[in-house]
Design a protein around this nucleic acid. Structure first.
Lengths: 202, 202
DNA sequence: TCCATTCTGCACCGATCGGTATCTAAGTTT
DNA sequence: AAACTTAGATACCGATCGGTGCAGAATGGA
């Protein structure tokens, strides 16, 4: 009985399931759930469709397992941050881990938890690029406005318009993600207030 | 010549192009670019595929025009915010407009500019829900940790763990969006530092 | 040795995708 | 009235989607 549990009869699996899942996670991370086709996934995993279905069930379950792996791997900074001794250190470590993981060389830019459905396949790339350009344009306008504020003495001379613009835009993007996840207006207004409690933050 | 410009020969358009574009914008806003099929779009617009192609070119151009309309409509708060007299008012109005627009009743939750490719069709809904639950779980863990900090005296007694957790998660989500758009690690670390310059923000 | 299981590889399924063709009917110009 | 353009409806195109079936080979335990 134990022997059957350890090694079920039949040809053993010819690939490393953990490594295959790691590869699948990277594809989902980069291309999102719908943008990652079975062809993309299995090619990256180095196995056939049949093997993937036998090992992971279907695409949805593969994604869930990839998300679990992401939590224990690239997103492990979150759990580590929660163990810091003070709240300030928790928050600092959490955001530092967020920065580090979303900009890690060799890994897709961004967070699987956010853009797992933000990224897309080739057909949606133009729209994705258009939206990135749209956000960049808004940020540039904020930057110019804050530069003017520095010039006019409205902001201190050592204020960094680039940083301030990116800060405001980052909070706004985060608010959008929160709203899409069901946060209420009152909750988000509290967040906006908190983000501006000391202004300018630099 | 003026007459031909005003009314070109042939049967005039039988629908209001502006209103059709408005409807299309709402569909893109709610379902994202790839999640919005031509069937969804034309049904909402009340016209046929042929009419849509004749009036707007193709799906990509329709999306671009819908994004323009979004900029001039629901996202007009951004332009208005830039006209405020002080930098603080600019930032305040920008974030307040972001909150208001992403949580407006009768409109899709979130920002078209962020989740135009974040949302998805029916096939990706389960993955989308899983990611929302994933982010909610992370936020709950932060909240519990901050509650403990209050209990231990690490945070002042009047600190709001719910707000602090949402604040940190919002900034992290924004960082993820920024990273996906190409922001560098150094730039984002500056943002994270700015977000924590006065802690706790409440 | 026999059997069970998984392997690779390919063809295939129904469904949907964005986009087009074809038809008739209708309305506005010259 | 003639010329022109659009609307509506329907069917269709090639491509891709997630998922399956079937072939034959490989590799283990009983």
């Amino acid at each position: 009985m134990e022997s059957t549990r350890k090694a079920p009869i039949g040809r053993p699996r010819g690939f490393d399931a953990d490594e295959a899942l790691e590869r699948a996670m990277m594809v989902f991370w980069e291309q999102g759930y719908e943008g990652a086709s079975l062809t993309d996934l299995t090619r990256a995993m180095g196995i056939t469709r049949k093997s993937m279905y036998a090992a992971f069930g279907n695409k949805e379950e593969l994604f869930r397992k990839a998300l679990e792996r992401y939590t224990e791997g690239p997103a492990a900074y979150a759990a580590r941050a929660l163990e810091k001794p003070s709240a300030r250190e928790v928050a600092t470590a959490f955001l530092a881990g967020s920065v580090s993981t979303t900009t890690r060389p060799g890994c897709p830019a961004g967070c699987l938890g956010v853009q797992g459905s933000l990224a897309s396949g080739d057909s949606g790339r133009v729209a994705q690029d258009a939206l990135t350009a749209w956000r960049d344009d808004g940020r540039a306008r904020l930057r110019h406005r804050f530069q003017r504020a520095v010039d006019e003495g409205d902001l201190p001379p050592d204020a960094d318009p680039e940083l301030l613009a990116r800060y405001v835009m980052t909070v706004a993007n985060g608010i959008a993600v929160q709203a899409a996840g069901g946060a209420t207006r009152a909750e988000l207004q509290q967040v906006a207030d908190a983000a501006l409690r000391n202004w300018p933050p630099a």
